[in-house]
Design a binder for these strands. Structure first.
Lengths: 343, 343
DNA sequence: TTGAAAGCGTTACCAA
DNA sequence: TTGGTAACGCTTTCAA
């Protein structure tokens, strides 16, 4: 078992209080004593006990605020679930996670939730920031003037001073999609419909960008014949799919870069086209598994929702509690692909 | 903040000691008092503080023993790394992880290491059991007579009484491989060489089994023209690849179901065949990423090594410390596929 | 600048 | 069958 502050105190011939002051550089200690104590600590490889610290701080635990947006879509429900599990984990370690939910991506609502978190005296914020200058300014102010560290997840924001970003390389996801689509179409290319959500969602347009650029350089006969927006809604997805399949009779494939997974699948099934039309989607969800297994969806390109829920709180807690900075300022998850063989 | 034992004691008008006895059913308490106390606890939704418990138990922390086999191969180096990180996590929670390494898969060595763990008084064991009746008996005895719970990972063992298994469905991995290979060969089929490791390794032959059965039912023109064993060694992989490519001049693809990843890749590169020969491997490793990006490997079918390192200790710790049973007795990870578009 | 002591929520042990 | 108390390793506050 590691050496404790009390033991160091005995060895160095001072009180535990003094040792604590030295360890945490709280000042108010004679330089000579400081030297002696820190040397003893060094020699014995002292590491503060997490449990001891956590217990001592039990009355004012480290408080971390989280804002989850777009909870209306399934992907963020999964993220939310992971966050709730993370809340337990963090509680064990002596921290507190305050989770605020936001059905949509409205910037005003987000700032209101931020106000609430600040009023709650959180010492750190985890957020998928709305793409809005006011949110950026608000967060930068939080960081600069109140010293609250920010961790972004899923979506990043240009010009934001944050501790780190946890997410995925959406452009590369789009590239992956091009590669897989080429395989599905046996290298012969084909006509493709892209269904997207909001224009403002970076994840959506970055995926399209990656797909298009990869097609341009490597798969020139993959042809985007149409692009439609479903506002992340299942009904819209469903309608678009039905309409477009009626209008474009030689369509070969559909790519969905946003939410609205089941809408597309249901439409394809009803039309009996799920065999003929190749289908690639993003973000693995409980409901996509079934359609993968049925063969309606061919591939799901996944960013790990659980990781996005569990990692940011841990990173922030480590930073606040242990003063440990994350190793990278961009923690980008591996891009993985799911097939009908799921398990 | 949750209610504490002390507060319950005050409300119920007894001492904390008594409350503790009630909470943990240690007996030696008047039935009437027991009822009263547990009712108060119930009403206020008492949950014991993890930190308090951990600190109180600091002198005899929960000890968990881990045996990692096959550390000579890269995959288990990754697992080992995750285990070392898990050791830190567990330490924070008030537990201790004792990790024993085994270069190969020898059953005798494994039992020797088990002896050491038992001598160390571990309260739980995480292990990839050797496929050997003596190991099974040893572990079953540990469980039945000393009450030490076992968690298996990566490899399971028939007839073993274990708390749960953390791993992957190897057969389904093999099926996935067939599906992807068919895509790579544009649905036209082809001649395939399979390279395996040991005959005794379940992961190896289960993957082959899954592949073969899926070919039988869905992809009849995928033809296994040869099967070679590399004993999980790079050099052997290299030699086999070179030899077989010389002997079978119309070979279309190679599947590696064991370790020995770089050996195959290097041979293919040297022969200038990396474009022509399709290549699918299992288990993502640091070194496979490079070959994926170069296009030497087409797909890596992955079982999450990090999860296999981090999950079993947590499950066992939760069981011993919090008396919380895992939800499933088979925790099978998702099968994911990696392409050249990695991170 | 330093020391002493109380407290965080448990467990363990001894005395009553 | 109960209560009291020390201990776990640290933080914080008050007093010297």
């Amino acid at each position: 078992m590691a050496i404790t502050e009390r033991e160091i105190a005995e060895i160095a011939g001072v009180s535990r209080g003094t040792v604590d002051r030295v360890i945490h550089n709280r000042g108010r200690v004679d330089p000579e004593v400081h030297r002696r104590v820190s040397q003893v600590a060094e020699e014995h490889g002292f590491t503060p006990s997490h449990m001891g610290r956590a217990l001592a701080l039990a009355k004012n635990p480290v408080k971390i605020g989280v804002i989850v947006h777009l909870t209306k879509i399934s992907f963020f429900q999964v993220v939310l679930q992971s966050l709730k599990e993370a809340r337990q984990e963090i509680a064990r370690l002596g921290g507190e996670l305050i989770i605020k939910e936001q059905r949509d991506i409205d910037a005003d609502e987000q700032m209101k939730l931020l106000d609430e978190l600040v009023a709650d005296n959180v010492q750190g914020v985890v957020i998928s920031p709305a793409q809005d200058a006011r949110v950026r300014n608000y967060l930068n102010d939080l960081h600069q003037n109140i010293g609250i560290p920010i961790v972004t997840f899923n979506t990043d924001l240009e010009g934001l001073e944050r501790l780190c970003y946890v997410g995925v390389d959406y452009v590369k996801e789009g590239r992956t999609c091009a590669y897989l689509m080429d395989l599905l179409l046996r290298g012969k290319g084909g006509k493709i419909l892209i269904i997207s959500g909001h224009l403002t969602q970076p994840s959506n347009h970055l995926r399209v960008e990656g797909f298009a650029s990869e097609c341009g350089t490597h798969y020139p006969n993959l042809e985007i014949v149409a692009m439609q927006f479903n506002n992340d809604e299942q009904e819209k997805s469903y309608e678009i799919t039905k309409t477009m399949l009626r209008d474009i009779d030689d369509l070969d494939a559909i790519i969905l870069v946003s939410a609205g997974h089941t809408g597309v699948c249901k439409a394809l099934e009803e039309l009996g086209m799920s065999e003929k039309i190749k289908l690639i989607m993003f973000d693995s969800l409980p409901e996509t598994d079934m359609y993968l297994e049925k063969g309606v969806i061919d591939f799901v390109i996944d960013q790990d929702a659980n990781r996005q829920g569990s990692l940011p709180p841990k990173i922030l807690f480590d930073y606040i509690f242990n003063n440990k900075k994350p190793e990278q300022e961009r923690v980008v998850g591996q891009i993985t692909v799911k097939t009908k063989y799921i398990s």
